[in-house]
Design a protein around this nucleic acid. Structure first.
Lengths: 153, 153
DNA sequence: TATTGTTATACTCTATAACTATA
DNA sequence: TATAGTTATAGAGTATAACAATA
């Protein structure tokens, strides 16, 4: 029972990641959003986050890295950020209605563009791939508390 | 027939990529290899590459970025690099026997470590996932001539 | 003149470590 | 004293562009 020869997982994932970035980039810049800004909007999309540090951790960023991003999004009225009355050290961050609308519009565009990539698969394969990818994603999300992206080296 | 709600592809792939880097890192540094050095060894593993630029493109790096890596690997006797007699502008780069052995040992270790991640899947899912990932990988490899990794932003 | 490899440089991204304000 | 957020800074990683050698 010999193992199938295959490229490393990372060797297959990274080129795919590059293509996905290339797909997202024009969509994001059409709405004047950086990758991190979109990550913040996505991170806030599900449920409101209590602290900025928690938000940063959830999207795999350093807490200091998200601050200019939050400044910008707040200035543009896409998020609200106000001190928690109960503990004035923490900032309650949330999407504004407009932020929510931008987020869902952009996400829809991105996912539509991603479909072009997935269309190369049969419907069955496509479904199975997304399901398994989601499983792995959830499994690493609980295993590894989100961390900042290590750089190249 | 409503679309299933799902996170963006990139949002699922990137955390997975981070975990894979974390898995590879200790294995690579045990052999004193950087990520790019391993990418070079991998790139040379299949068939010898004729030019350094082609090698760089194959691993998604800038041609100037691989030079210090090649210097180091050559100094350590893991690769050979000699001018092509037929066109002395180009350097013929190849794995030495020792380089080949290091590469296959390290790759075996990495893939063994990756299996721990894949073990969270059923054998069927695991097989299907690897097969589909490979399909996508091949499809983007021909579509997008390998390019340097765009940075965050 | 065009191409391969190389070097030097400027730029971007990033984490770290101080600092503030609250508790 | 400890924690959330902020700011400033130094370091790493990168692409760009100029350069040398060969064609």
């Amino acid at each position: 029972m010999s193992e199938e020869r295959r490229p490393d997982l990372a060797a297959m994932l990274f080129p795919l990641g590059r293509v996905l970035i290339a797909i997202e980039e024009p969509i994001l810049s059409a709405s004047d959003l950086s990758m991190w800004a979109y990550a913040v909007l996505s991170g806030l999309g599900e449920e409101p986050v209590r602290t900025q540090a928690a938000l940063a951790a959830a999207i795999g960023a350093d807490k200091s890295r998200v601050i200019p991003v939050l400044d910008d999004l707040q200035e543009r009225g896409l998020i609200s950020r106000r001190p928690d009355p109960a503990d004035r050290r923490v900032r309650l961050v949330a999407l504004t209605p407009e932020g929510r609308s931008v987020r869902s519009r952009v996400q829809a565009e991105i996912q539509r563009a991603e479909e072009e990539l997935l269309e190369r698969l049969s419907p069955d394969d496509r479904r199975a791939f997304l399901r398994t990818l989601h499983t792995l994603y959830e499994s690493v999300r609980v295993a590894e508390p989100a961390q900042a992206m290590p750089r190249g080296s």
